[in-house]
Write a protein that binds this DNA or RNA. Structure first.
Length: 132
DNA sequence: GCAGTTTGACCACAA
DNA sequence: GTTGTGGTCAAACTG
């Protein structure tokens, strides 16, 4: 259905690499026209994956999305869109038409990858030395 | 001081 | 009727 969309992470990585190539380094949050807010994260032991929950921050918009990834394979990300946006995207010309859902989802995926996994293009700094 | 993110606790539903 | 899992909310922490 249109309300539930699952996307493989392969496209995400591919697009990510393209974006990184274009921008030279880390990609900025690609505004897909929607404002997502993370409101929870859980480890679903039934599937052995972490799941993050996002809500569209727009007023009266009930659109949500979930991001699942394996603890052993954090790049194996799966995104599930739930619900539909009751508003139009404000920062993008992307529409909610079925033909453009792919682009729209990919844009969302960038955002998710960054929010869920952090910016993997820039490895975190080394941990501080132990207090001892 | 503000905004955003993270984590824990609580509630509801299904088995 | 009980237990477990999933989903959401709210408070605290970090940038």
């Amino acid at each position: 259905m249109n309300t539930d969309t699952e996307i493989s992470e392969e496209n995400i990585i591919d697009r990510e690499e393209q974006e990184m190539g274009r921008r030279g380094h880390r990609f900025v949050l690609p505004e897909d026209g929607y404002e997502w807010k993370k409101y929870g994260q859980k480890f679903i032991k039934n599937i052995g994956k972490f799941r993050s929950y996002f809500k569209c921050q727009r007023a009266n918009c009930t659109a949500k999305k979930r991001a699942e990834w394996s603890s052993s394979e954090p790049t194996n990300l799966r995104i599930v869109y739930d619900g539909v946006h009751t508003h139009d995207s404000s920062t993008s010309t992307i529409t909610s038409s079925s033909n453009n859902n792919g682009n729209n989802n990919i844009a969302n995926q960038f955002n998710l990858l960054t929010q869920v996994l952090g910016d993997q293009s820039t490895p975190p700094p080394p941990p501080p030395p132990p207090p001892n």
